[in-house]
Structure formats: structure tokens, C-alpha cells
Design a protein around this nucleic acid. Structure first.
Lengths: 340, 340
DNA sequence: ACGTTCTCTCGAAACGTTTTCAGAAATCCT
DNA sequence: AGGATTTCTGAAAACGTTTCGAGAGAACGT
């Protein structure tokens, strides 16, 4: 006679009965609380025998801990975020939790409703990477019943654990570097400017021009509809329709890849005719043709730091919120024309 | 006397008390079960007033439903899987569930332990995309207390909902296409051959050669250590060290991108000197230089189908398991030299 | 008017843990 | 030896829902 295939899974009571102890003792053993070696043995064996696995819902209902951490990001398809996923995943897993991913499509309403959902408490903490962190976000974070760490730029004064990159400085670096290589008509393909990265990278671009004594020419600037390859290609095409720069700084590697495609379609050589610099230094940068010079904003590092801030806060909820910043670093490859 | 600011979140009891009904009634109202309009109003208002949100743990403890679906894949950084994430996400969300992502790094032990973890029941179902689906996997799936749908190739006879691509036929198509363009020394950059994709793509490659009356030459075949860009580059370099093909079929777009980099480094022109074809038709294929001809295996579609199979099974656990297959389609771009 | 059905509601029993509390047994001290 | 301490244990009370069973009225048919 065969066991029915889908009988009820063993519960703590099953184990306790088999081990001839109370559920309390069984629970203690399985949570590693010190007990008499004899009961320890009996319980461990019983648990082993029936293949006991604790029920997540029951456990978290009682203990008020879910063992889950969420990471909300604008776009899973962007390698910046997948690299963040990687480094967050490592840390979260090391802490014994699971990682839940949520892709918001950079949609504000979606982000806010996700924050509201935290009230369901299916997660112990959230790492939120938002392109546009509004007052509404700050309010929602403050109202959240669980810790939230932010990768991005919350409004100043918000008391939130934060990790940010100084992408403004990074953009300026890129422009200065291009100017140093003899480029004078430096174009800029930006992402949406109402986003934090969009606005700060534009500022950085202008900073850079100013620092080089270059005049500002709006014909050299084009704004893509989002931070994707396709949008980058279209934006670059619009820009090239108007004018021909001798360099192109792109607010993001994906935009830069799109721009490379647009340049190729126009038979413009990179870097001979147009030098190109991207931003984020994703793993794609090394394999474009030509390999893409890019500003490393330390994504993986920022993600790791955010995860650590979050875990620390979960550990000690009253801790004073901290803000960390990583400094950008230009990674030179061939697309800028610097390599011999 | 004022309420403390961070008091316990409102529970169903809070709502019920405020609405002057029993918790049972409150629960019914909030679950949309038909009730007297008067109590409906009172409960809704009360819930609104206190900002009630049901507790996920309690709800799923009682109802035995978590509202969470997991997707386990080999590698978040591979655009094939992020596109799967996208389409699965849509469906899952439409069904009112959350999506949990797990990246296994194509590690068998990790996959198996993840399957074992399902016993915790923190999830209502799993979509498993595994490169190498062993008997151990089949056993683990059978032992899982919740439905599992597989994207890949379970051993024949396993009674598991499955969606698969016929990548063998796709690989053969690619080879035939290259031969049709006049290429005779068609190389092959494969991924690890102990994986299902690795072995079936090799078979397909050989099928293709045979169909074209081409001889088999092992010097033209190189196996990468995994399905990534870097591994593809190294493998292509090893191959080019040995011999110079006039075409290269790569088992995967990432491998192909790596191969493009290797070819560029050797100053071989694509497609003039070497034609290249990839597989998966990821969103990167359109923007490499030159744009990559690739075999579309319908990843997004397969993912969608898997999600639908899973949801259907969750709905009706006794349903007979189904196996679906999508047929590959060659997407011609410039890298194969077919375009004028 | 009187049973019969139907519609709503409520109290209470789950769901499977963790944790508190008090007591029993063992160990320690002087 | 006898109290004081220290283990260790089990009964029972949570945790916040959903759902079962039963009862109270209201509506209905005759």
C-alpha cells in the first residue's frame, strides 16, 4: 500500500509526538536553543525521519519576521540593476533571507503602490532604487512599517538610509576627458530630465563644458524618452539629423549602445569621427564595438552598501540614518579614442 | 491623551470593533463576499479610516495561499532570462500575485536546495528554468508540495508541466542558412555540453552539417565554460588560434557577442571574413555591430506559456500535465552576410 | 398563521509556529 | 542536610486571518 501522494505535510506537532516531547521543546531544538542532549537527539531524529520543514507563514506570523527582503528597481533588463541584484543577493542570502525582486518600470505610481503594499508585511525590509524620488516617496517611506534603504537621491532632510553616486561629478569628468582628447563639439544624449540621474547628469555635462571653457549649444543635446538602448538610438539619430558632434557623452551605457548603433547606421566611425563615452560601466561596455569608455558609478558597490545599511537597520531599528556616497571613476576603453 | 505614534498596525479586530461588527463579517466584506450593504459600508469605511491592510503571514497561514510565485533561472544577467522575467511578471501580476526571483547560477546543488525549500510553502508555485534537468530534479519536483512548471527538458516520462524550445532544429536551421550563403567552414561555439541546451545545440549543429553534406571537423568546435560573454570570447579565441572558419554559429547570443569581440580583436571582419549567427534573439542582437543574426527561440513566449501552465495547475492541481513546444525562427540581420 | 427556505451575522475553531510562565528536577553552595 | 540557584520541560497563550456551524430574522409559499 502506497502513501497518498499529497497527504498533509508534517508539522511541528508531528515531530513532537514522534519524539515524545512537547511542541515547545521541539521548537526550541529546531531553533538551536540549548537543550538537554537527549531531547535534542530525539527531536533531530524525528524531524529528520518525517522530513519536517517549518511552515514559513506560521513562523513569520508568530515571530514577526518573514526572512524576505525586497529590491525594487526601475528595469530588470538594464544590466546596472542586474548587477545590483547580484551583489544584493549575495548579502541577503548570507544573512539567511530570500530576495524578492520587483521591477517598477520606473513608474511612480507603481513605486508608491509597492511602498503601500509593504503594510502587508510580507517582507522585512526594502531596498528601493528609484529614478525620481519625490516628496510622496519620502512620505510613503516614512509611513512604511518596515525599514527602507534607498539607492538614489531622496530629498535633503529626509531621514532615510541612503546610498548615492555623484553622477554629476562623473558626467563632468567624462566631458573633461573628451575635451582633453581634443574634442570640442561634445554632444550629450541624456535620459528623461525629470529623473534624478537625468537632471544631475545634465548639470554635470554643463559643469564639464564650463570647466573646459566650451560654450553651451542646445543643438548638441538630445533627451531620450527613457534609459534604454532603443531610446538612445532614436535620440542619437535625432541629434545627428541636426548636427554632427565630434564626441557624444551618453547618460548611461544603454543609451551609449543605442548611440553606437545610430552612428554605425550613419557610417560614422567611432572613435575617429565621433568619440563616445557612456556611464555605469556595465558588463556590456567591455564588449561593444569598439569597447565603450564609461564612467563607473560603482553600482555593485552601492547596492552592497545599501543592503548592508538595510540589514543593520533591521537589526537595530533606532539607528541614526546614514547617507553614503561613492565617487565615480572613468574607465577608459577604445570608444573615446584615448587608447593608442 | 494621545495615541503613541508607532503603535501596532490596525488589525481586522480593530476594523471590526470600529464598524461594530464581528471580525468574521469584516473579513467577509474585505474579501468581497456578498453582504448586507449597510455592513459593507460600515466595514469599508472603518477599514479606510484606520488604513487597514491585511497581514500577509496570517492570511496565508489560514488560507494556505501565499500570493507569491517563484521563478528560478540560471542567471539574472542573461537577457534571455530577464525577458522571461518580464513576461512572467506581467502574467503573475495580472493574477494578483507577487513574483519572487531566484538566480541559481546554473548550480545544480542550488537548484535542488531551492526545490527542497519549497517545503516551507512561502510560495504557491514555481517556474523552474534549469539548464540541466536531472533525475534528481524530477524527484525533487515530484516531492514538491506545490505545483512546478518547467522551462527546459525534463527526462521523458516525467509528469511535469513543461515548455520547451526545439533548439536542436533551430541550430540546424542556422547552419543550413549559413551554408546557403556559401559558407563551408562553419565553426561552432557551444556552451557546456552536459547541459540540455549545450547537448541539443550540438546535435542540431551536426544535423545541419549533415543536411548540407558538410564534413564534421572537430577543430571547428569549441566549448565555452558557461553561456556568458566572457566565456564566449575565450572560446572563440581558442578556436581562432587553431583555425579560421568562414562562419561561426554560437549557441547563445552572449557567446556570439563574445565571439564578435574575439573576431574584432583579430581584425577579422564580420560578415565579410566570418559570418556569425547567435541564438535566443535577445534584445542585444539588434544593437551589436554588426547587428546579430540570431535564432529566436521564443523566450518571452515560452515564459508566458509556462506561467500560464503554472497558474492553471494551481487553479486545478489534478489537471493532466502538458508539454508545449515552440518552434524556432531565424531572425536575419547583418552578421550572417545575408543582407544586401 | 405556520413551516420552509433563504440571507446575514456571530462566536469559535482552526492554521503552525514561537514565546511566556511556572513548575519539576537537578545542581550548587555553605 | 537544606535552601538557593540553575537547567530543562510542557501547557497554554499568543500572532491575525479565514471559515465552519449554528442561530436569528426576514422573506416566502401555501
Amino acid at each position: 500500500m502506497q502513501q497518498p501522494l499529497h497527504d498533509a505535510p508534517p508539522t511541528l506537532a508531528t515531530v513532537a509526538r514522534l519524539a515524545n516531547v512537547s511542541v515547545a521543546s521541539a521548537s526550541r531544538v529546531l531553533n538551536g536553543i540549548k537543550t538537554n542532549p537527549e531531547t535534542l537527539r530525539r527531536v533531530t531524529e524525528a524531524a529528520e525521519a518525517v522530513g519536517y520543514v517549518p511552515n514559513a507563514a506560521a513562523r513569520s506570523l508568530r515571530s514577526r519576521r518573514t526572512g524576505q527582503i525586497a529590491f525594487a528597481m526601475p528595469d530588470v533588463a538594464n544590466p546596472v540593476y542586474t548587477s545590483m541584484v547580484g551583489s544584493i543577493g549575495q548579502i541577503v542570502r548570507a544573512s539567511g533571507s530570500r530576495l524578492i525582486l520587483h521591477s517598477t518600470d520606473a513608474d511612480r505610481a507603481d513605486e508608491l503602490s509597492f511602498l503601500a503594499d509593504l503594510k502587508q508585511r510580507y517582507v522585512d525590509g526594502l531596498i528601493l532604487c528609484s529614478l525620481e524620488f519625490t516628496e510622496a516617496h519620502a512620505l510613503a517611506v516614512a509611513a512604511a512599517p518596515i525599514p527602507v534603504a534607498v539607492i538614489g537621491n531622496p530629498p535633503p532632510g529626509a531621514r532615510i538610509d541612503t546610498v548615492r553616486a555623484n553622477s554629476r561629478a562623473g558626467a563632468a569628468d567624462a566631458v573633461r576627458h573628451l575635451h582633453g582628447l581634443g574634442r570640442g563639439r561634445i554632444g550629450f544624449v541624456n535620459g528623461p530630465e525629470h529623473t534624478a540621474p537625468g537632471s544631475s547628469r545634465r548639470s554635470g555635462y554643463l559643469d564639464g563644458l564650463r570647466a573646459c571653457g566650451l560654450g553651451r549649444d542646445d543643438a548638441l543635446v538630445e533627451v531620450a524618452t527613457d534609459f534604454t538602448i532603443d531610446a538612445g538610438r532614436f535620440a542619437a539619430e535625432r541629434l545627428l539629423e541636426r548636427t554632427t558632434p565630434d564626441a557624444l557623452f551618453c547618460a548611461n551605457d544603454l543609451l551609449a549602445i543605442g548611440a553606437l548603433a545610430a552612428l554605425r547606421a550613419r557610417a560614422l566611425r567611432v572613435p575617429e569621427d565621433v568619440a563616445v563615452v557612456g556611464m555605469d560601466d556595465t558588463n556590456l561596455a567591455a564588449v561593444t564595438s569598439p569597447p565603450l569608455t564609461s564612467v563607473d558609478l560603482g553600482s555593485a558597490q552601492r547596492a552592497r552598501m545599501a543592503a548592508e545599511l538595510l540589514l543593520a537597520r533591521i537589526e537595530r531599528p533606532t539607528r541614526r540614518p546614514r547617507t553614503l556616497e561613492v565617487t565615480p571613476k572613468l574607465v577608459v576603453r577604445e570608444s573615446c579614442g584615448a587608447a593608442a
